[in-house]
Design a protein around this nucleic acid. Structure first.
Lengths: 220, 220
DNA sequence: ATTACTATACCTCGAGTAA
DNA sequence: TTTACTCGAGGTATAGTAA
């Protein structure tokens, strides 16, 4: 990803405010970027090809929508700087408990994962996940966490299928240690999967749709 | 400032950790940046010319020191992203009261400033400043605040001399509203000048060398 | 109004190499 | 070992312009 595209994404996000859509001609964008209209046009084409934005040409100004890749780009630069400049980063996520489908249990119980949880996270997780649907107000914080590095767990294959790499972030729920698990490659979702040594549902007496708060510290 | 230089500064800061000095050959830097040794060398020269770094060539690796301009660059990018991504930013500065020299009073009492304090900040400040020497642990937070935009106050001239532009940040000391004042162009200092409608020294019963906490919110 | 193609000017990068 | 100059190849930006 080169800087021109980063900078273009930054300007587009700035102009689209809290939404992710902006109506903007290539000439206007050119002024924002201090480049020619032709160059701005080229940037838009490149961003579109690389799936950072979607756009629809209209009679007048084109409508540009920032895709998840753009937000990832900005949030990971933000994380980079925060980490390099050693700013403390404490985050709070709120959401509610999703009824588990038992699928998480199948996944994390795989030896390929469990061995790494043990060696890299230093825990032997309860074989199941707690799924939290994060409230929309916290989606930016969620993006921020997701785009940080975390502790990497390699993917692997067994005879039948492939299990993807995931990354983990240390967190706390009601003072109990837990880990947030994200697929390394994934489309954006508002569901966070949590694992812990404890059986959280029982230990914290949690039920479906209970509201709860997850605290995460990105320490680096 | 172009991206290559931004990125070089970022890498140099990353490598110098909490200090601002790093010993690094152009070849090593080249690897970090994924460019040729020649290009890395050129970047170092350009950064030196533009006073972002200082370096001394040594027998082996050259010693590179990041100057304040580099930190400004990184902190202002961080602020940019924070503001664009609408992350909340609450900061805490701690320091102790410096004996005022009465000079602040002379400055801020100028009509050229007072009129703008009134129109732009909506306050009629007590004619004097409280000077706080910020503890070194908070210098990064101070840099972060200083490199944000704040409320701009134009500079002006009277018959005799020139008064520089300043920028102001809204803050609180012990629950009392106050404004932090920074020269727009200045070398780095750990002294923060505070103005307020109140006579803070008296109202908050403050004395020289008292320790105090300033809270600042950067909103957008 | 727009967007974006073509052609050229310009700039940036890195190989070769000197000190 | 270093740093950093020269110069040619390749890449990037813009003017002109069509649609």
């Amino acid at each position: 990803m080169d800087y021109n595209l980063y900078n273009t994404v930054k300007v587009l996000k700035k102009l689209s405010g809290s939404g992710n859509t902006v109506y903007l001609s290539s000439g206007q964008l050119a002024k924002e970027l201090n480049v020619s209209q032709q160059t701005a046009s080229r940037f838009i084409i490149e961003l579109t090809e690389q799936k950072y934005i979607e756009r629809t040409l209209q009679n007048r100004k084109q409508k540009i929508t920032l895709l998840e890749a753009s937000l990832d780009l900005l949030y990971s630069e933000l994380n980079d700087l925060n980490s390099i400049l050693e700013m403390k980063q404490d985050f709070e996520l709120k959401g509610e408990i999703q009824n588990g489908l038992g699928e998480g249990k199948y996944y994390i119980s795989q030896k390929g994962y469990m061995d790494q949880f043990s060696s890299k996270l230093g825990i032997k997780p309860y074989p199941g996940t707690l799924n939290i649907k994060i409230y929309p107000e916290y989606e930016n914080i969620l993006r921020r966490i997701r785009s940080a590095d975390g502790t990497h767990i390699d993917g692997f294959k067994d005879n039948e299928r492939t299990f993807g790499a995931v990354k983990c972030f240390s967190g706390r729920i009601d003072g109990t240690n837990a880990w947030l698990i994200f697929p390394e490659r994934s489309s954006y979702t508002d569901i966070v999967e949590i694992i812990s040594e404890k059986f959280l549902r029982k230990d914290l007496n949690l039920n479906d749709h209970d509201r709860l708060t997850i605290r995460v510290t990105l320490d680096k």
